[in-house]
Every structure is written in C-alpha cells, then in structure tokens.
Design a protein around this nucleic acid. Structure first.
Lengths: 185, 185
DNA sequence: ATTGCCTATGCAACTCGTTGCATAGCAGGA
DNA sequence: TCCTGCTATGCAACGAGTTGCATAGGCAAT
C-alpha cells in the first residue's frame, strides 16, 4: 500500500488538513495516485496513531476548524525505508482495452463515441499538463532537486498523454474501418 | 466492475476452466486486466448463478476434473449493454511516480537501481510483445474483425512500453545528474 | 524416498476502496 | 427566500481484492 507514502510526500512538500489533501489528490497528486476523502481521513488517523505525522488543530473564522497535519521524523524514516524496498507488479486495469476486444462480439461502431470521449478527455488533460508546465517551470535551467524530480514526473504524464492520444486515434481509425467493412462487405 | 466482462470476453474467444482463465490472466489478458484465481473462481460462480455463463464438467485422466465454462446468450447481451455504457475515470496508481517525488526528501541515488529494475522489466515485456506480434499476426493484410481488434490493443501495449522505456531512461539520467550534483556541488 | 512443481478448486480471514449519508455554518445566486 | 455549493470531518455498510491455507493426484528430478 502506497497511500500512506503518497500522503507523506504531499505533507513533506506542504503540510495540510485532510480536506486539503483530498483536493490535492484531485489535482496534481491524482495524476499518479487517486484517493477519496474517506480513505485519506482513515489513513491519516492511523498514521497519526503510528507517529508518522503530527496534527495541530487550527481554528478558523467563518468556516469549521481543521486539523493541519505535518510529516514527523518517524514518517520521513518510514518513507526512506520504503524507497529502498523493491516494489509492485503494478496491477493493470485498462477497461477500454477490455471493451475493444469485447467489440468483436458485438458492434465495433457502438464503441466509437465512447473512444472519442476518452480521446477528448486525454487531449484536455495533456493541455492542462502543458499549461501547468509553463506555469510551474518557466525556467528549466534553474531547478532545485525537488523541482527536477517533480518535473521528470510531469514529463512522464505528458508523454503518457501524448502516446495515449495517438493510440486512441489509431483505435478510432480501426473501428471506423471495421464499421465501414461490415456495412458493405 | 469489469472483471466479469473481461472473463466474458475471454470465454467468448475460447471456453475454458477457472484454472485456465487464471493462466490467461497471467498472460495476454493480464496485459490490461489482472486477477487472481480466487477472484476468478468467485466471480465465475456468481456469473453461473446469473446465467451469464454455462458450466460443463469435464473428466480428465491423470489430473483432477475441471469445469469448462462458456459464455451464454445472457452473458453476451450483458456484455453488449456494458459496451454502450460510458465508463470509468480510470483510477491511477503509479507507485514509481510517488517514489520519484519522495526521493526529494531522501537520497535520489537510492532510487537508481530500482528504476533500472523497472526499465529492464519493461524492456523484456516490450520484446515479448514484439515477438508475440510476429507470431500471432504474421500477415497484417488479412485480419478478421477479432484479430484487428486484438492487434490494435497489442499496438497500444507496444506503444505504452516504448514510451515507458524512454521515460525511465529520462528518469535515470535525471537521478544520475542529481546524484553527481550532491556529491560535488 | 523425498522434495518440489503442476493441475484444479475452494474456504476463511483480512485489508483496501467505494458509496451513501450526516452534520454544520457560511456565501452567492435565482 | 430557497437552493445550491463550499469547507471540514466523520460513520456505517458494502463490495473488491489479497493472502494463507487445504486438498489431492501425478510427474520429474535429486
């Protein structure tokens, strides 16, 4: 399980409440790790009990109080240990690939609009990444270690989206060709 | 949940026992959907109860009896319905990306061997895909619908591995540069 | 002879992840 | 004024996924 570790990284980069973490997981962190607020609150309580993080209650006016968490030394040590462990067979769940192969037993044309939706979603994400890159890394010649590492992860996201986009166009061309073939074979 | 649907696709392509399905999920299907034998047996029982698949006991000599499942009409209909539903935000779990960002709070050099391991794994997988392509699709000019769709999914796998490989080399170069910088800044 | 691996299925216990709902005050628009 | 939405945290129930173990015969190598 790496949710603890993803939370630790996020808290090391910037302390925050459970709610704030949930929003980060909807944005930047969510690029490579997703989590709902339920998961996050549960894990935060466990991590606090284990001494990995420390909580400080913060009163706010006009809105509910919050608990701001920050990474503790024990958490940083646990993270360093995890870094040195070999990991994961990376479980894959690619629903669209299942659908494409399933289309052989139904109508390939029925999938076209669904694939177009995915393509548009990936195109939008790529454009968000590229804008985010320009905003957060305007000068690529002077980055510190943290920024270098954030940027190489972002480059991975960008390349992934580019590749996915090209593949989805390939899928669409294939589906359209098959649909035309079955209409007048 | 798409495990049912992945199993249906596999059984439509070729009937088989739970054990055989489990092995397929370790090989080709496992490229885009993973599952253990436990999950598979449980889901098979439910699908049989729902009338999506039919089971036929097959006696074998020299080894235990098996139950060979095949997709039923109700299953095919369910699969066609699922094809037409919009789906999934595709939950992402990219442990290596978490590790890379975590390295900013520890020693970037500690990650190098881990990333090299991943790179080697992806290189081996790419080579398996390319050999599988040559074996299963020797003549790309005469494919039926099913093969066309299988091949476009395989192309996706190949492009994914190529992209990942290039990115991991980028990650390695970045980590090595950062490691050199911190040794003599 | 024993050990280990392969086929084949399954139970039990557990953890992880998701969904629906609840509370509660404040802000902004129809 | 009412409705919607945001901040902020949490409970309860369920479903999905993992891990360890069990059975049981056959095969091959040590």
């Amino acid at each position: 399980m790496a949710l603890e570790h993803a939370i630790l990284v996020s808290l090391l980069e910037q302390p925050g409440s459970g709610y704030e973490l949930a929003r980060r997981f909807d944005r930047s962190i969510g690029r490579f790790w997703t989590a709902t607020h339920q998961q996050i609150y549960r894990v935060l309580r466990r991590m606090e009990a284990d001494g990995w993080i420390a909580a400080e209650p913060v009163a706010q006016d006009g809105r509910p109080d919050k608990k701001v968490y920050s990474a503790a030394e024990a958490g940083r040590v646990a993270l360093a240990g995890w870094l040195r462990e070999p990991v994961e067979p990376e479980t894959v769940r690619h629903e669209l690939a299942v659908k494409i192969r399933a289309a052989a037993f139904d109508d390939p044309a029925a999938l076209i609009s669904e694939v177009e939706r995915h393509r548009d979603g990936h195109a939008a994400l790529l454009s968000r990444y590229l804008h985010g890159e320009q905003r957060d890394f305007p000068d690529l010649t002077s980055l510190d270690t943290r920024q270098e590492l954030q940027h190489v992860v972002l480059r991975g996201g960008i390349e992934y989206e580019r590749m996915t986009l090209a593949w989805l166009e390939d899928v669409l061309a294939t589906l359209r060709r098959l649909a035309a073939d079955t209409r007048r074979p």
